[in-house]
Design a protein around this nucleic acid. Structure first.
Lengths: 134, 134
DNA sequence: ATGACTGCAAAATATTTGCATATTC
DNA sequence: GAATATGCAAATATTTTGCAGTCAT
């Protein structure tokens, strides 16, 4: 937990109890949760936790470069604390999101046709290896 | 207009006045509009057009493979009638979405690590060539 | 005590649904 | 005239905001 606290402080974020709990959750559970899922799970540990704090904190993390949104499902915004270059596979049957660690040549930060590229997101949709057999 | 009508019919969709107007709009205006933008523009041409019909019709188009959603901006769902393999660049300053016509090796339908890939979306975020100079 | 943080309740947004009316073949 | 499509209004879901209370230094 000590490490996580330091990461927050290094970005000028006060490591409050709530913020640490949220940060810890998205680090420990690589399920790419929604705000609502975070709320439902954290309320068990931090009974006073409110949705407002979840939303505020997640927005702050994204702004400070500590998390990013995954916009792969049309109906939900999911969060990821892994800021390394990687892409995502979404199973449209079970809703699971899996990390894909590879890089396309074009898919690196830089410039494409005069446009400055700051972020690259590769989203792959389909049926996962577990669901395809059921 | 005749062609578009045929496309709808070939997918088993009755080419009503409203549906044709929506389909024509996303074909003619390659701005990747939101449902709301479609509504605001089409209400001028089809005064009885309702948001319900826009949402119903767009969902139907997506389901039947005549359009797809672009989930690149965290705050809006945008629609694209171009079903060819291509990716999107989003300018976070002006909100414009530009098409990028190239293909990454991995970014083709098929299979990755046992998962069946049905769709590939490459989203690039940054500042467009127009905004970077202003 | 001051300023930052939290969380309730209400508001704003976006999308979906129920159902009565209208349209099409 | 039966089946399908449309559109209003209400419901739902999601996220944001205003503000009063709380916490930490």
């Amino acid at each position: 937990m000590e490490e996580l606290k330091d990461i927050l402080e290094s970005r000028g974020i006060k490591p409050t109890y709530q913020r640490l709990a949220i940060f810890k959750y998205i680090h420990d559970h690589k399920v790419h949760p929604t705000a609502e899922r975070l709320y439902r799970n954290l309320i068990k540990i931090v009974p006073t936790m409110s949705r407002t704090t979840i939303y505020n904190t997640l927005s702050m993390f994204v702004e400070k470069g500590l998390a990013r949104t995954i916009l792969i499902s049309p109906t939900e915004v999911r969060y990821d604390a892994d800021m390394s270059t990687h892409h995502h596979f979404w199973c449209e049957k079970c809703g699971k999101i899996e990390d894909l660690f590879f890089e396309c040549e074009k898919a690196r930060k830089g410039e494409i046709e005069g446009n400055i590229i700051k972020e690259v997101h590769g989203y792959f949709k389909g049926i996962c290896r577990d669901c395809r057999t059921h």
